[in-house]
Design a protein around this nucleic acid. Structure first.
Lengths: 342, 342
DNA sequence: CTGAAAGCGCTAACAT
DNA sequence: ATGTTAGCGCTTTCAG
């Protein structure tokens, strides 16, 4: 591999000049030509490591997700595209919904000297994240936030998303509405539960505590909890499930128990993925603006990296939409009639 | 951030000694203690960039996948875990099934100076990949290979996997067996098609060319091609679909057309993901040993990075398994009875 | 066993 | 407009 020195020597200029050409600084056209030519000739590629050592910038950003499922990977894709466009590359790693592992991954990213980070925190008290901020490396929280922490975050309005979902069930005439919650140490889990509770409050309805279950966001927990709910002497007639993995688990359980949806039980889930769309029947879901979340987060992070702290800390609360499908609507198939394709 | 110099100064030793302690070389216990203590005291963390510049190793490896779907991300997870265990971190990027983009991503990884790469090539004539090999950076092809190229690869036996799938259909008594193929410029696409053809040859059966369709691995193409097949005046009674996205698309099409599986059409897919498992009915699938693929690839790459070229170039051809489910077996549900859970 | 010193390849003052 | 030079933080001969 040729170095900048080789180029300088061959072109008969100093390394500084070559560097200037490389970085688009003012250089006499004639010498620039000459340098460019020798660069091509030698097949020279700047050594990014050396450059990083000098500039203290790696042009790399990290993204810590809880898992590699469709929801977060959709965001990752958007983020990667945008950041690539700015000349940054993305390192994605997964925390496995485990604060310890999250900390380890963040540490690794720190040591790799990333210029910034996007994190989906696995707990609402991530003291470690704050250190980063103090160290001056921009961090954007995405999807979930951390309590008592002042930093940029891109979230959705989970409370009202959940509210809308549960209200939809009530409007449809369901009375015994259960909920399968996610981890309450995570803001999305807690907020969605809060939305559920608020509906009952607003409608002045009684809640049967038996219908409230707590899972850990995993397919397995959705499966197990749905079985529990349906084994009750007085089972629910509808269930709100607060993320997509648990929804899948619940659908599998329902299927295994040979229960009819929505006739015997109505289901509304959170997140819209291929799974919920392909499921039979398709699941009514609170859909999050994935594309927008990714775009906003990536662009905000880029601005922070560039030193623009004008509106820091900025919190986005994007709105969700309720997509009604057959799992809460027996008429769905007829009404739809070709409106939803592949 | 303190540097090695700060540590050396504070501990009253030379930077060389600190470096030795850091790298576990022989140092008098007493001085080692002292150094370790000041490292802790100052909260010193070695600067990996500086180290990389010196050692020419980044302890990073790249992984280029066609997409962020479940199949490849499952592999990525395995690979990441293993490599992390060896002290390497993984940069995953997606080529979007596009050779140009793949080239760009590989180039980026090269410039980032990764110590090695795992690539799922998007074409069977990736001249660019060979350059890497010449440059001495280890590359392992995974899932797909490149023709006329001598390099390590971890593949599955697609031909026999497909063969088994189609033979299963024949055994079940289906006659008009269609196929939805993937991109033929990609070895998996071509090999699976070959497996399909071979069955007809071996059984000395006539093929109706009308039943052979070519897609691009996407859900959309699976959807469109299945619609085409089922709109034929003489439609197939079974279809083999050569990857999971197209299988999903096909299932959606079938659903939309209100066709019953397996009564009116039997389906066998390639790849086993949540989608094919959750689908109604669940799809009989050729399942690939994802875990094993990841393990083998990661460990092989590690060995190559460590300079062990003993068995180069090594080609693995792992065996697939056929998982029979309801999409080819009306009796499935009864037979199963609790054998398959969440 | 430890220290001095020379770089790895690049950028950025500072000079010219 | 270009060249000189001093590092960025680390590893690694080579001496001692």
């Amino acid at each position: 591999m040729p170095t900048i020195k080789d180029v300088a020597a061959k072109a008969g200029v100093s390394t500084a000049t070559v560097s200037r050409v490389l970085n688009g600084e003012k250089v006499k056209d004639e010498t620039k030509e000459k340098v460019l030519k020798t660069i091509k000739l030698l097949g020279y590629r700047p050594n990014l490591i050396a450059r990083s050592l000098k500039t203290q910038k790696t042009h790399t950003v990290g993204f810590v997700v809880p898992d590699y499922g469709q929801f977060f990977m959709q965001i990752a894709k958007v983020v990667e595209d945008i950041l690539n466009g700015y000349g940054y590359s993305l390192v994605v790693c997964y925390s496995d919904e485990n604060p310890e592992r999250e900390k380890a991954r963040i540490k690794m990213l720190m040591e790799k000297q990333v210029d910034g980070m996007l994190v989906v925190p696995t707990s609402d008290q991530d003291d470690y994240l704050m250190e980063l901020n103090k160290q001056g490396i921009p961090v954007i929280l995405i999807d979930r936030m951390v309590k008592d922490v002042q930093t940029d975050c891109v979230l959705v309005d989970n409370v009202n998303g959940a509210y809308q979902a549960v209200e939809h069930l009530i409007t449809k005439g369901y009375h015994r509405i259960g909920v399968i919650n996610g981890r309450q140490e995570v803001t999305t889990g807690e907020e969605r539960y809060r939305g559920y509770l608020r509906v009952f409050e607003d409608y002045n309805l009684q809640i049967d505590r038996e219908l409230i279950r707590f899972g850990d966001f995993s397919t397995e927990s959705g499966f197990a909890l749905m079985k529990e709910l349906m084994s009750l002497s007085n089972p629910p007639d509808a269930v709100f499930i607060t993320n997509c993995y648990m929804t899948i688990g619940a659908m599998l359980a329902i299927d295994e128990m040979n229960i009819k949806v929505p006739d015997e039980i109505a289901i509304v889930g959170f997140d819209d993925t291929e799974l919920t769309r392909l499921s039979k029947p398709p699941v009514t879901s609170v859909v999050q603006p994935v594309q927008e979340m990714g775009e906003i987060a990536a662009n905000l992070l880029y601005r922070r990296i560039c030193g623009d702290m004008s509106d820091y800390p900025k919190m986005y609360r994007l709105k969700t939409t309720l997509l009604v499908r057959a799992s809460t609507d027996p008429e769905w198939k007829k009404k739809l009639d070709g409106k939803e394709g592949a």
